[in-house]
C-alpha cells in the first residue's frame, strides 16, 4: 500500500506502467490527498519517453526476401576461377630433402663388415688347432734331430727378445717366458685337456725348460715352429695335483701382418661372445682376445 515512506517507488512503478489498474488509482488518490507531492509525481512521469513514430527505417526493401533461394544466392559466392596469380614461380619453395642413399650404402657396408668379422672370429680357433698340431709335429721332428746347431742356440740366448722370422710369421721368445715345472700332475692335467696342454706335453716329452729354455730356442731356430695362438696356462688346479706355474706364460706374438684395426674390434667382440667354447673342445676356458684362460673342471 502506498504511503509517505514508499510513494517514490510507486511513482516510478507508475511511470514504468508496472502497476495494475487498482494500484494506479491508489497512486492517483494518494497524490490528490498529498498535493505537496504532486510536483514530484509529475516530474517522474515526465521522464517517460514517448516513441517517435515518425522515425522509420528507410531500407526495408533491402531486407525483404522473395524466396530462400534468392537469399542463398545473395549470401553465397562462387569463386571466379579465371582469376589466377601470374607469378607462382616466385612463390615456389623447396625444402632440402633428407637423402638416405648414403645411409643405405653405409648400412650395407656395416653389415658386410659385421658378417666378415663374425666369420673372422671363427678363424683363430681353427688356426689354433692347426698350429698346435704343427707345434707337436715339429717338436717331434726336432727331438729326432737332437742337438743341432749350438751356435744358433747361443745366439738366441744372447738375444733375449729375439724375433725369428719363419716364412711370413714371426715368433718371439722372451727370456724367462716359459717356466714349466715338470710335474706328474701336469701330465694328468694335460691328458684331460687336449688343446691347452697338448703343446706343453709335447714340449715336456722333448725337452725340459728351465728359465731360458735353450732347447726351445734351438728348436725354434732349427725348425721353424709356429705357435701362433698364445696359450696361457695359469693356476691349473685339480684334486690330485696342484699346479702352479707362477704366471707361466708361453707367449708368442702374432704375425704383424694379421694385426689390423678391425681385428681389435673383433677381439673386443670376442671378449663378450667368445667366453664359452663348444663342448666339443672338451676344454672349458675363457678367451680374452687372443688369450685363453683355462677353467679348472
Amino acid at each position: 500500500m502506498i504511503n509517505i515512506t514508499n510513494y517514490e517507488t510507486f511513482f516510478l512503478l507508475y511511470a514504468d506502467n508496472e502497476l495494475t489498474a487498482d494500484e494506479r488509482d491508489n497512486v492517483l488518490f494518494f497524490v490528490n490527498e498529498n498535493p505537496e507531492l504532486r510536483d514530484e509525481f509529475e516530474s517522474i512521469i515526465s521522464t517517460v519517453v514517448s516513441p517517435e513514430r515518425d522515425i522509420v527505417y528507410a531500407g526495408k526493401h533491402f531486407l525483404y526476401v522473395d524466396s530462400a533461394d534468392d537469399l542463398e544466392k545473395m549470401y553465397s559466392f562462387k569463386p571466379n576461377l579465371e582469376i589466377q596469380y601470374p607469378h607462382k614461380e616466385e612463390l615456389y619453395r623447396y625444402e632440402k630433402s633428407f637423402r638416405i642413399g648414403w645411409v643405405k650404402s653405409f648400412m650395407v657396408a656395416a653389415s658386410i663388415i659385421l658378417i666378415a668379422g663374425l666369420f673372422w672370429m671363427l678363424i683363430p680357433a681353427n688356426d689354433q688347432s692347426k698350429e698346435i698340431k704343427t707345434v707337436a709335429n715339429k717338436q717331434e721332428i726336432s727331438s729326432t734331430k737332437g742337438s743341432s746347431s749350438r751356435l744358433k742356440k747361443e745366439r738366441a740366448i744372447n738375444q733375449p727378445n729375439a724375433i725369428t722370422s719363419i716364412g711370413d710369421k714371426k715368433v718371439a721368445i722372451v727370456n724367462n717366458i716359459v717356466k714349466l715345472k715338470k710335474n706328474k700332475g701336469v701330465e694328468k692335467k694335460i691328458d684331460n685337456s687336449e688343446s691347452v696342454v697338448s703343446s706343453t706335453k709335447q714340449v715336456e716329452n722333448s725337452f725340459e725348460i728351465q728359465n731360458i729354455s735353450t732347447e726351445v730356442v734351438d728348436q725354434i731356430m732349427v725348425d721353424p715352429i709356429v705357435v701362433a695362438e698364445p696359450i696361457f696356462v695359469n693356476n691349473i688346479e685339480s684334486n690330485d695335483t696342484r699346479i702352479r706355474q707362477d704366471n707361466s706364460l708361453v707367449n708368442t706374438n702374432i704375425s704383424p701382418t694379421r694385426k689390423t684395426p678391425f681385428r681389435g674390434i673383433i677381439r673386443k667382440i670376442s671378449r663378450i661372445i667368445g667366453k664359452d667354447r663348444p663342448e666339443s673342445d672338451q676344454v672349458k676356458f675363457i678367451q680374452v682376445a687372443n688369450f685363453q684362460l683355462a677353467i679348472a673342471q
Binding site: P51, I55, V56, Y57, K60
Partner: peptide, 11 residues
C-alpha cells in the same frame, strides 16, 4: 518481421 520490427529496432 521486417515490416513489424524494423522500425522499432531502428528507433
Amino acid at each position: 518481421c521486417v515490416d513489424a520490427y524494423a522500425d522499432p529496432v531502428y528507433r
